[in-house]
Design a protein around this nucleic acid. Structure first.
Length: 608
DNA sequence: CTAGGGTTAG
């Protein structure tokens, strides 16, 4: 650590003022900043330069080099320009998403003892949040106080948002509560909206609604953004009617929904197949004079594609061009996926060229969509060809690219190729994520590499990163299907202690496993346990337990279970029905063997 | 001069 600091200091001295900022990687230190003596400018005042700077900062900086040049010149001017000029420059960099440059400049200003104000600090904290250097962002809180400023609602909102985008909702909530408890600041609508959005995105919509009421009671009026966060969340939870109700509420309070609100609603309506309501809403937008934007059209393209209506999707794209809302890479990607969804990979490939002709460069999504399309058609080699084409076009394959192809390879039983590709993926620096883990485990089990699957799972357990019910469900399923019920049950019983809640699929798999091993009583116990734990059985659950009862020749219980299933408005599936049909005597054995009359009675009862 | 909401792939 000490060595690093020495090295960093040396680096810092070696660079000239502006070349320093060309280095986008500059590690931050929270406790010590390298010192460099202030070098007074050789010239005195530059009225012309000041004028130029003034104009540039008004127009905005077009290029990074401009900003760097201006910064260098600003440092030369004496007397020192007001803080606001420096803040404006930093803001310009933030707008250009040159966060690391902004932070480096700020550090240079600190070294040169150029005064900064709270706005400067806030801008830099914002930059740090985008650079994922939250520790440094928080350390600036101390810097604010040391400089005689007071962190304000901007500071804390930025930090809260930073915590949220770093997947630390609990810490964000904790900070928010602490601020209120110690009356550190008076939260405003932006801060409340940030927390509300954080709650929504961590599936705490009901808590978000409570906070909405609370802020109103505390005299802070929510705006369209506050409502839209919750409306979007309700739509994603498929509670579109609740979302529509909330739109009525906000409208009633004089807060108008905007295009983003409508887009959330459209998305919700489309994904629940409510086409009439979608059209009604689009009309409403027209009446209210809210023009559709790129997102709106993309949602419609997606909706048509998901319905298999690629022709209509293409019509939407024509309208977009007509209305001067040109389709973007997402529009074309969505359309390509629409074709791939129906196996039309060659049409998708045509779209890839269409987009190129329209000046839109394909991205990683484009390739992943096509690769997935080929894998679904079992044309994995074509998918691999695309993988090889990606670097040629300057696109880096990501974890999803590799995972998709690995999935495709497993489906074709090409276990060796999986190994090669997996190692290539690691070598290229792509870290397997949770979906990769699912694909690997599922593929290994389905290809009967049971020991390999189990040892992979053990490895994942050691790394303690698989707090995922789906992973455990895949393993339980794999173990059950390969005669390792005991081990499966063992994992199932440990779920709760690992903080995992078995879902209906996990239960169905376990129930089926128990039934197949003749442990029908245990299966029944598990069924009642799942009901008491608040996990509702679905049609698969009922069919599984019914087939289990038949497998274990418990015909009276089968009758009770079937009646129970029908009472819950579920019915026997094909597999259950054929199992009952199999109970009937076959044509050729009709005379020779006497059928158990109870079985016959049951089958006839069922089939009537 | 600084903070908050909506779209695509495994």
């Amino acid at each position: 650590m000490a060595g690093m600091l020495v090295k960093r200091g040396a680096l810092f001295h070696a660079f000239t003022c502006s070349s320093l900022f060309h280095s986008h990687f500059l590690p931050f230190s929270t406790n010590s900043e390298p010192k460099r003596p202030f070098i007074p400018s050789s010239s005195t005042t530059h009225p012309q330069l000041q004028q130029l700077l003034y104009e540039k900062s008004k127009v905005g900086f077009n290029k990074l080099d401009d900003a760097l040049e201006v910064f260098d010149k600003m440092l030369q001017i004496k007397p020192l320009l007001p803080v606001i000029k420096f803040s404006q420059l930093l803001t310009a960099l933030v707008r250009m998403k040159e966060y690391s440059v902004a932070v480096s400049m700020f550090r240079e200003m600190r070294v040169l003892s150029i005064p900064v104000d709270i706005v400067t600090f806030n801008t830099i904290i914002h930059s740090c949040c985008h650079l994922n250097t939250l520790d440094y962002a928080f350390s600036l809180l101390a810097g604010i106080i040391k400089s005689g400023w007071v962190p304000d609602v901007f500071t804390y909102t930025t930090l809260i948002k930073g915590l949220l985008s770093q997947d630390k909702p609990l810490e964000a909530d904790h900070l928010f509560r602490k601020l209120i408890r110690f009356r550190e600041i008076q939260p405003n609508v932006v801060m409340y909206s940030t927390i509300i959005d954080g709650l929504c995105k961590t599936s705490n919509t009901s808590t978000a609604l409570k906070l909405l009421r609370k802020m109103e009671n505390l005299g802070c009026r929510p705006n369209a953004i506050t409502y839209t966060s919750i409306i979007d969340s309700l739509c994603k939870e498929r509670r579109v009617d609740n979302a529509l109700d909330l739109v009525s509420v906000m409208t009633h309070k004089g807060i108008s929904p905007n295009v983003i609100t409508y887009n959330s609603l459209l998305q919700g309506l489309c994904s629940s197949g409510r086409w009439e309501d979608t059209e009604r809403l689009l009309t409403e937008m027209g009446v209210r004079n809210i023009p559709s934007d790129l997102h709106t059209y993309n949602i419609l393209v997606d909706a048509y594609c998901k319905e298999g209506r690629t022709k209509d999707a293409q019509d939407v794209i024509d309208i977009m061009i007509e209305k001067s809302v040109p389709p973007d890479v997402i529009t074309y990607n969505t359309l390509m996926d629409g074709f791939c969804l129906r196996g039309k990979t060659s049409r998708a490939l045509e779209i890839l060229n269409t987009m190129r002709n329209n000046g839109i460069a394909p991205d990683c999504y484009s390739f992943n969509i096509l690769i997935n399309g080929y894998c679904k058609r079992q044309e994995v080699d074509k998918a691999i060809n695309l993988l090889r084409q990606m670097p040629v076009e300057g696109i880096k394959a990501d974890v999803q690219t590799y995972s998709t192809i690995i999935h495709g390879l497993f489906q074709m039983g090409r276990h060796n190729d999986v190994h090669n590709l997996f190692h290539e993926m690691l070598k290229k620096g792509n870290k397997p994520d949770i979906v990769t883990c699912r694909i690997l485990l599922d593929g290994l089990f389905k290809n009967r590499y049971i020991d390999e699957a189990i040892s992979l799972f053990r490895m994942m357990e050691c790394k303690d990163t698989v707090h995922d019910i789906q992973i455990h469900t895949i393993v339980i399923d794999g173990l059950c299907k390969n005669g390792k019920l005991y081990e499966a049950r063992n994992i199932f019983d440990k779920l709760a202690s690992r903080g995992l809640q078995p879902n209906v699929i996990t239960h169905n798999i376990m129930i089926r496993g128990l039934c197949q091993e003749g442990l029908f009583e245990e299966a029944k116990i598990l069924l009642s346990e799942m009901e008491t734990s608040g996990c509702l059985p679905d049609d698969v659950t009922y069919n599984t337990i019914i087939r289990g009862s038949l497998l274990n020749k418990r015909y009276e219980e089968a009758v009770v279970l079937i009646e129970n299933m029908r009472a819950h408005n579920f019915s026997a599936d094909a597999s259950t029905t054929s199992m009952v049909v199999d109970l009937l005597p076959k044509e050729e054995q009709k005379e020779q063997e006497e059928q158990d009359p109870a079985v016959l009675a049951f089958a006839k009862w069922f089939l009537q």
